[in-house]
Design a protein around this nucleic acid. Structure first.
Lengths: 198, 198
DNA sequence: TTGCCGCGCGGCAATATGCCGCAGTACAAA
DNA sequence: TTTGTACTGCGGCATATTGCCGCGCGGCAA
């Protein structure tokens, strides 16, 4: 619904960048990393990836990227630490922090530590690119580009938490603060629809 | 968790400040303003108050305070605009943004616009003072754990889209693929819930 | 003025949810 | 083996939430 046009004029906008701006993707979820990486490549980024903050830090020291997408909660070191390190090393890197466990507190910390934006998963490539673009705090900005319906968002979130709990419906319901029966019904109603990430 | 001790050694820390650091309190809730103002005076601040962003801005232009506590949602201009104005005029002012309608989106905006911290009501004087003190981003401090409940996720998302559409409820409802009436009801009902995550 | 659009709200039927219970399965400890 | 615990799927039913109508209001531009 909202891609096509946005894909290319991005690299064009970045006069200060190489033709293919470098992007470091840090997330310990292999699937997520692979999928997002692929998309971002198509969008004109030179993508490198790391599955932990430590590995990422090694890479960054060698060659600080222009852009970075960093997951907050990873096995090992927190993404927040990495954000601070990168900011200290090279304040020019534009970082977006991702998380499935959004909270005001971590959002505030992320921004203070130098991130450009903070997004709660699920996100798609458009969200991230929009976040990069919107470097300054625009009180009103209004960028649009987010047709994610409530239902879809809910579905994505449920799937995520469900996966994190190894498909355990009872635990997921508890953690999500919803009735198990309700979760069951939601799951059984949706099975046909398999939303595409892109 | 973080009070008691912080109350008095605060003024002491501010070598660059007057003995009584100036504090501007902006909130359109008269009771809240009065109560908090009183407490902050006792805590050693030279307190001035305003019941709207516009009035506050007049005051700030005359004499930029060292500290400011700004409510986000007020009749008239949003507190966010004031944050930006103050930051542009005098970046040295330490601002804390308050809100009863906490959301990630507004938290991020607040920090990007120059606020030192973002707190969800209800707050007490200790919270605010702690926020002023904690200027540095403490990476490991905020770890956060539990996933967003469905309700909260929905709330965050609605806030985000709503902000992107300049608070236009009809457009937001359309974009979110939900009934306008439903959105209205959600918006009017949620604030009663404790939106504070932590 | 008229037309368009957004807002807030009431009412009512259609749905969804919360909460009970029950039966079946799996697994680990006794 | 038996026992205890936990998860799953499902039915029923009272209650809560939505969807969808309508209304009147105000702002704004043609």
């Amino acid at each position: 619904m909202n891609d096509s046009a946005t894909s290319n004029d991005f690299a064009v906008n970045k006069e200060s960048a190489t033709l293919r701006p470098s992007l470091l993707l840090v997330d310990d979820d292999d699937t997520f990393r692979a999928v997002l990486g692929k998309v971002m490549k198509r969008r004109g980024f030179e993508v490198s990836m790391a599955n932990s903050a430590e590995v990422a830090w090694q890479s960054v020291q060698q060659d600080p990227p222009e852009y970075a997408v960093i997951d907050l909660k990873m096995g090992g070191q927190s993404g927040l630490v990495l954000v601070r390190q990168i900011n200290a090393l090279n304040a020019g890197t534009k970082m977006v922090v991702l998380t499935g466990y959004a909270s005001i507190a971590t959002a505030v910390e992320s921004i203070k530590l130098g991130a450009v934006h903070y997004l709660a998963k699920p996100v798609d490539a458009d969200d991230i690119i929009a976040a990069f673009d919107k470097t300054e705090g625009d009180a009103e900005a209004a960028v649009a580009a987010n047709p994610l319906s409530i239902d879809r968002l809910e579905w994505e979130h449920i799937q995520r938490i469900l996966a994190e709990n190894d498909g355990n419906i009872s635990v997921t319901a508890r953690v999500l603060n919803m009735h198990r029966r309700t979760l069951q019904r939601k799951l059984s109603k949706h099975p046909s629809k398999r939303p595409v990430p892109q």
